[in-house]
Nucleic acid binder design. Structure first.
Lengths: 163, 163
DNA sequence: TGTAAAATGATATGTTATAACGTTAATAGC
DNA sequence: GCTATTAACGTTATAACATATCATTTTACA
């Protein structure tokens, strides 16, 4: 039983791949479906389990990693480096003008307690401030996606910070 | 041949542990020395190699991880989650008023190309802006240490961004 | 329909991290 | 000083995360 939002996202992804001349194969669709349906960040192995248990499709770790690399290259998913997990791009189902993941500088808020991930836009002016504050250090931003360790509202209510 | 800055940092660390009533054992000193002397972020296994090759002390992975956990708990080192490595706290050798790692909200700038890590202070006002921009999301900052994917000046000069 | 490229299968191995349980060493209270 | 208690460390096993390599299958398309 597939969510309608998943259907829409898959349709978008398929269109995207077609327009880029790359193949949106059954297995790639499975992996993306897993990420979309689970609604959370999953590690490669968790995703493998999800595909087996919920979608009834067996994939080897190597296949999962290859497909995740493909989907990331196509900007259909994001790798969350802080937790070594993967999430579907939140903008996939949008019928927005821009390519998925392409023209928005979104940031990942990661709940360190429950591992929920929220993809949000931050004020461009704030990003500029960060860039400016980095200038004297000689370091420059390498990515448009900041990853920020957070507590989500649920976890903040029901306990205290971890670190 | 130990750097004088390392000596100073070790002295600080020793004092810190004494005042906290925890033991700064020989092995813990070895691990911290490795991080200080190497001058870079190291994974647990890289650190194990460093201790063996440069300090001539054999430690098993389990010991390394235990000691890293201890040093992190004592705020003498930082874990770099973006790269799964560890660095000595940049403020260790400072004879500043505050405890090492305690009263400064520093951020880690990580070169995605050469993995160099720089620990910097960011304007408190900037941190406040970030906190404020998170408010509508329901997520709140969990750590005082932001980790930011960057390019260092050397890598920025000699090539293009990775992602 | 033959061929080149892309995708996937299969196996092995490398890398990062923790669990579990036993032994040794340090410290505190007597 | 003795001994109970706790902290540190040793040891082994295994979990979790990730990539290398080469064989085979599928696909696109000339």
């Amino acid at each position: 039983m597939i969510k309608s939002s998943t259907e829409a996202a898959l349709a978008q992804a398929s269109k995207h791949c077609a327009s880029r001349g790359v193949r949106f194969t059954a297995k790639r669709q499975t992996v993306l479906t897993g990420l979309l349906e689970s609604g959370q960040a999953l590690s490669a192995y968790e995703l493998m389990d999800y595909c087996r248990d919920e979608l009834d499709i067996e994939l080897l770790p190597m296949s999962i990693y290859r497909i995740l690399a493909f989907l990331e290259r196509e900007m259909l998913i994001h790798r969350v480096n802080l937790t070594n997990k993967y999430i579907a791009c939140a903008h996939l189902a949008d019928d927005c003008v821009h390519e998925p993941g392409k023209n928005h500088a979104s940031h990942l808020l990661i709940c360190t307690r429950c591992h929920r991930v929220k993809e949000v836009e931050m004020p461009p002016q704030l990003l500029r401030s960060i860039v400016r504050s980095l200038q004297p250090t000689g370091f420059q931003l390498a990515k448009r996606h900041l990853e920020i360790d957070c507590l989500c509202s649920d976890c903040a209510e029901s306990g205290n910070a971890t670190t």
